[in-house]
């Protein structure tokens, strides 16, 4: 078993509900430090669940998940929350931001839960400076950076703010769940390369899920979801299969 690298998953089984008859198996999945991996597959194959497991939001029934050399399955949920806050950045498909907060506050939000990540950047003034730099670098115009309410931004601008939030403080792992699905192809490629450049500059690995194989060029490795995830009806359960 190689436990080094960014992510190492072995023999994981997950059930959505305690009595559920539908289960998810991930026999093995690995990711090296600073590696950029694209997981491709149709929706409904358990990709969100996989990301929740890696982020430590969900816990598997059996098996081991190592992130940055730490076995998540041996941690309490509070410790997993802390690990996520310190070392991971998460970008959702949409609705990433607290709508009433400013763009800057949304970017700074993860630092509230991650003292080490905060210290890596420096003083509060430096934190705001870094947030501005990221937003600027990701192509957000100055008037959008100054926005008081994130809900006033366009969808594309909101995704950029979300990316800046995931990238601030240079976390080791960026997890992104179809972050470009709401963007048109032009902005999509531009957005993606900006995010990947910034992650590379910070030394962070990127794990992105998408149903769009056209993005493959941006990544070191493309992994079909079906090759690592097996979703199946549990033969030991009698209840009817139900997908969440």
């Amino acid at each position: 078993m190689h436990r080094e690298g960014l992510i190492s998953v072995s023999d994981v089984a997950y059930r959505w509900t305690r009595s559920g008859s539908f289960r998810l198996d991930i026999p093995a999945f690995h990711m090296a430090a600073a590696e950029r991996v694209l997981l491709v597959g149709p929706s409904g194959t358990g990709k969100s669940t996989l990301l929740a497991l890696l982020a430590g939001i969900a816990a598997p029934e059996t098996g081991h998940i190592h992130v940055l050399g730490t076995d998540l399955t041996t941690l309490t949920s509070a410790r997993r929350d802390r690990l996520r806050a310190e070392h991971m950045g998460v970008i959702f498909q949409m609705f990433n931001l607290l709508p009433y907060g400013s763009a800057i506050d949304n970017v700074l939000l993860p630092l509230s839960f991650a003292p080490e990540r905060r210290q890596r950047i420096g003083s509060p003034a430096a934190q705001v400076g870094e947030a501005r730099r990221l937003l600027h670098h990701l192509g957000l115009p100055p008037d959008a950076i100054a926005t008081r309410r994130a809900s006033d931004l366009s969808v594309g601008q909101q995704q950029r703010v979300a990316a800046a939030r995931a990238l601030i403080g240079r976390p080791a792992l960026i997890i992104a769940d179809e972050p470009t699905s709401a963007l048109d192809p032009e902005t999509r490629d531009q957005f993606l390369s900006l995010v990947l450049d910034e992650a590379r500059a910070g030394g962070g690995g990127v794990l992105m899920v998408s149903h769009d194989p056209a993005l493959a060029a941006h990544f070191d490795r493309v992994v079909p979801l079906q090759s690592i995830i097996r979703a199946q009806a549990d033969v030991t359960a009698t209840a009817p299969a139900r997908h969440p």
């Binding site: 949920s77 996520r84 806050a85 310190e86 990433n96 931001l97 607290l98 991650a114």
Partner: peptide
């Protein structure tokens, strides 16, 4: 619910 999912994602404890 959205607020909570976001807060959880950025590392807030339950």
């Amino acid at each position: 619910r959205r607020e909570m999912a976001i807060l959880r994602a950025v590392g807030a404890r339950p």
